[in-house]
Amino acid sequence: MATAGPVCGPISSYSRVRILHLVQTRSDRTIGELSDATGLHANTVREHLQRLIDGGYVIAQTEHRTVRGRPRTLYSAATGAPGASSPVARDKAKAAAARGDLLRRILPAAASDLGRDADAQLDALIEHLEESGFEPVVDDVQLTVDLAPCPHAAARPEDRPVLCRVHLILMQGVLAEAGGPLTAECVRGETASECTVQLGDLRGVTHGMA
């Protein structure tokens, strides 16, 4: 039986997951707000935010003030939507698509029946999940992504809903950033032994049916 690899990348720390969850649920957070919500020192929050920015998961903007005083830095999730997109995330998506195109030129059989845009989205999604410590198995007929075993399996059971929610939103952002018809609809199972992402196709194409 395969074992999950070590949790790695910018969201390897549950503290960073908590911070990311907060900026996903509301944009334009300040370090003070995040420090109060997590109980972490402001300098620790700042360090975690920088890791998330470097990973393409968070964007920082300077607030526009109409009163005197030093403007604050506001932090939001990089969702892939216009105005909420990270240059790091855009570069990752482009690089993943380029590597995928090269592979499919060498091995044409590696292409799916979904089309180039959807293939590029899957390229970006797979690289994101591997960076996060998963060993994703994609079924491009049923449009599912098997994430078992989960590298977060050792997390406290009460933490799993937040972990799964954060990862789902990240996957939605990665697919949106890559651009194409595929979306991440939900995570099924959410246990250490069963965790499957159901993808959707905005073109209304039915997959996996006779």
Rank of each mutant, 00 (worst) to 15 (best):
V58G: 01
L107I: 11
H152W: 15
L49N: 01
G208V: 08
S193G: 11
H64F: 14
L143I: 11
A37E: 15
R99V: 11
P87F: 13
R29A: 11
G204N: 09
R26H: 13
P6S: 06
A4V: 07
A120D: 14
R203G: 11
T66C: 10
R105N: 10
R18Y: 08
S85K: 06
A192D: 09
H167R: 10
S13R: 09
D159R: 13
H152V: 00
A84F: 15
E131C: 03
G56N: 08
P149A: 02
Q172F: 11
R188W: 00
D201A: 07
A176E: 13
V45C: 01
F134N: 03
A77H: 07
R65H: 08
Y14M: 12
R68G: 10
H41F: 13
R116C: 04
G133P: 02
A96V: 02
A176D: 09
C195L: 14
E47P: 00
H48E: 03
R18I: 13
A2D: 13
A118K: 00
R65P: 02
G208L: 12
S27H: 12
D28S: 13
A98S: 10
S112A: 10
S193W: 14
S132T: 03
D117Q: 13
K92I: 05
D139E: 09
T191I: 06
Q61A: 07
R68W: 10
P82M: 04
D119I: 02
G189N: 03
G200S: 07
V187T: 05
S15A: 15
Q61H: 08
V17R: 09
D117V: 02
S85V: 14
C186H: 12
T25I: 03
V197F: 02
Q142L: 13
M1D: 06
S27F: 13
L107H: 13
R18K: 08
A210N: 09
R65G: 04
I19H: 01
E130I: 01
C195V: 13
G180C: 04
V162T: 15
P151T: 02
H21K: 12
H41K: 10
L125F: 09
S27V: 04
S27G: 12
T66K: 11
T206I: 14
L102R: 10
R72I: 02
E131G: 05
S112C: 10
L102S: 12
A60Q: 15
V7K: 07
T144M: 04
G180K: 01
D139Q: 05
Q50D: 12
H167V: 06
C8F: 06
L52E: 00
G56F: 07
L125V: 02
L163R: 07
P6C: 03
T3Y: 08
V166H: 02
A210P: 15
T183N: 08
L129H: 01
V58M: 04
S76M: 04
L20V: 04
A37M: 14
T144V: 09
R90P: 01
T30N: 04
R188V: 05
L168A: 11
R165C: 00
H207C: 03
R68L: 14
P136V: 01
H48N: 09
L199H: 02
P149H: 08
V141L: 15
G180A: 05
Y57H: 11
L34I: 12
G208E: 09
G83E: 06
A118T: 03
